[in-house]
Design a protein around this nucleic acid. Structure first.
Lengths: 230, 230
DNA sequence: CTTGTCGTGAGAAACTCTTCTCATTACGGT
DNA sequence: ACCGTAATGAGAAGAGTTTCTCACGACAAG
């Protein structure tokens, strides 16, 4: 009973490799997209319920077999990484006003709302970004300095908001402002305001907005001062 | 060989409960303190080597049996939590100058140095503070809002640095400045500057210092403006 | 020195997570 | 509607972690 189609099946470059790691096997990509989507959604559900995200649990919630789930995501981190979708994030910089101060305020405000509304998920994403990719083996061929792979989305968002000042401010000051503003909003800022400062949602957001505005103002004054002296 | 003193041993209210959960069995507390210390040190060693922290590994490094290790720390998070010792942190606010701006700059600078020198450990601490306390069970009697137990050390440090301004600034502005400054240094700020902004150690520290100074300056100006108008 | 107490060690058992194998199912082209 | 292919499912096997049980040894009191 093992002979019949075993030959043809195993001949197809192995059952493991059949999944087309890049996900671009033209064959039945809809099915695959559906499965993948179901798993990611399940992970989000788990996080929102405060349950730990494991491949097995995500599989159960997604009504997919464990084996299949592992074919798509071998690590829970991958699942959470997939959660971060580009389109939603870029809404934060859509239709920004012209005035730099208003632009920054809008950006910080929108991102804060976005993240405060889905705090559990964002916390999980940050946590997963802090995990070392060393489950059992040591001495990975990775950067030993400890820099994990991380999306630089926020930096791009801030850059967009500060774009109008690119010509006004000296390059190095502009760069410093870019980094400083990036420092006062986003997930890490959310954690600080909520856990360390113990602020409620409203005040957390207010502090971020005030800080961003103060930094911008300080940079503008510093530029003025340099102009007068120069 | 199994008969001799079995009766007396088992009669001792169970070996499991013998540890005196509060850790205050006057008898041989030194021994216990030594074991506990060895385990915490082992955890730090593991983190510095980039290895994942498990109770079993910590036990091995600490040259303690696995069973004993689990008697002290049932979860790796507990191990890392113990890492944060108060004395070292308070050095950051020792001998601060009088001038508010210098005080804040000193504080941010010192903490940044401290954390940049031990980045792996601080990352691990932050990660563990983000973990939900729900290993396998759901529906904990805890706050469902998701606020983990966290030391408010940093807030106290910032408060100390900003103390001289307590009388100068309006209370609400002082409070806001306190929160904002707390936002731009510490572990979360470290993560942002390093991972999101991709800055090197020097520039990361510079951005934090600049941001803190800018916030302070902005707050002072805002206070002036209010005084003139009021 | 004797004796009770209590922290500890060693290993088995239980548990969860991950990987593997092979038969089955469902998709997509014809 | 049919057929080949590739994704899926079920369960077993494997690896790692956590808990449990029982005996030993060190420390303190008498």
């Amino acid at each position: 009973m093992t002979e019949g189609r075993t030959g043809s099946t195993t001949g197809a470059s192995g059952a493991t490799g059949g999944l087309a790691r890049g996900g671009l096997s033209e064959g039945r990509r809809n099915q695959k997209l559906r499965t993948r989507r179901a798993l990611v959604d399940a992970a989000v559900t788990l996080v929102r319920e405060g349950r730990p995200v494991t491949i097995a649990d995500a599989a159960e919630v997604a009504q997919v077999s464990v084996a299949t789930a592992y074919r798509y995501f071998s690590h829970p981190q991958d699942l959470l990484r997939e959660t971060q979708s580009a389109p939603r994030a870029f809404e934060a910089v859509a239709d920004l006003p012209d005035d730099p101060a208003e632009r920054v305020d809008q950006l910080v405000s929108r991102v804060a709302d976005l993240q405060l509304d889905d705090e559990a998920v964002w916390r999980a994403v940050l946590r997963s970004s802090l995990e070392r990719w060393t489950p059992s083996d040591a001495a990975e061929p990775e950067d030993p300095d400890g820099a994990p792979i991380r999306n630089r989305f926020r930096l791009d968002l801030t850059r967009t908001a500060l774009e109008p000042l690119a010509g006004t401010l000296p390059p190095d000051l502009h760069r410093r402002l870019l980094m400083a503003v990036t420092l006062v909003y986003g997930v890490e800022a959310l954690i600080t305001t909520r856990d360390v400062c113990e602020l409620d949602r409203t005040e957390a957001k207010d502090v971020m907005r005030w800080a961003a505005g103060a930094l911008l103002e300080a940079a503008l004054r510093e530029a003025e001062g340099q102009d007068e002296r120069g």
